[in-house]
């Protein structure tokens, strides 16, 4: 899997690259408009992370180029401009997703994975880890062939964990992932705890060989059982 990160801010570019490399992607970078245009024209990528405000030009123009060459590349816009207009313009031009800065790396991972999955025509849409499989289209979860019944919040949590296997997810990241806009209150941190507890119990009961591990003082991660 090859991913191009178009971002002019070096530090941010570096963390994105580091995070994506952990997921075993091949990552290339472009730090300005010209470099990005050049790379987009000459190489093929599975997914492109595209900043809109770039030195030398607009990311939206690069998006136009990509779409005009009829390449089947997934494009996720990452922009500091969290405005509806930009979002609409980007998606209208054919971007697959839009992520406003600042974002969680876990969120980025989930989006990248989702875009790549959608682009793969052979269509292995299932997310798998151990004997756990999750179908994002039918919201169906199975453990070793047995269906696992989850409520919406538990499903959202599990989806997030399985999109970021083996990675520590902070409580606030989880809150935001599951409750979106409503989550900006500290109270909800306790709710994460109880939801994770429920999910963990269900996974154990059904005999999954993955487990949710608490990382003291920070959050949780989904790992394969030893």
């Amino acid at each position: 899997m090859k991913i191009l990160v178009v971002e002019d801010e070096k530090s941010l570019r570096d963390v994105i690259v580091e995070s994506l490399e952990k997921e075993r992607y091949v990552v290339e970078v472009a730090c300005n408009y010209n470099e990005a245009s050049f790379k987009v024209n000459d190489y093929d990528y599975d997914c492109i992370l595209l900043d809109i405000t770039l030195p030398g030009g607009s990311g939206l123009d690069i998006l136009r180029t990509i779409k005009s060459t009829k390449k089947n590349e997934g494009v996720i816009i990452i922009s500091a401009k969290d405005s509806i207009d930009d979002k609409v313009a980007g998606l209208d031009l054919g971007a697959d997703d839009y992520l406003a800065k600042p974002f969680h790396l876990a969120e980025l991972n989930a989006r990248v994975k989702s875009v790549i999955r959608r682009k793969q025509m052979d269509g292995n849409l299932l997310l798998e880890m151990g004997n756990l499989t999750l179908n994002p289209q039918t919201f169906h979860v199975e453990v070793g062939g047995k269906p696992l019944a989850l409520n919406r919040k538990e499903y959202d949590l599990l989806y997030y964990f399985i999109s970021n296997p083996n990675r520590v997810l902070n409580k606030t990241t989880l809150v935001e992932a599951v409750w979106g806009d409503y989550a900006d209150q500290a109270d909800s941190l306790d709710f994460v705890y109880s939801q994770v507890k429920n999910l963990r119990k269900k996974l154990v009961t059904i005999g999954a060989d993955v487990e949710l591990k608490a990382v003291y003082g920070f959050g949780y991660k989904l790992v394969l059982k030893d």
Binding site: E9, S11, V15, E18, K101, P102, H104
Partner: peptide, 9 residues
């Protein structure tokens, strides 16, 4: 964004 993401890493 950089701060948060670095902390995540």
């Amino acid at each position: 964004a950089i701060c948060r993401n670095k902390l995540e890493l």
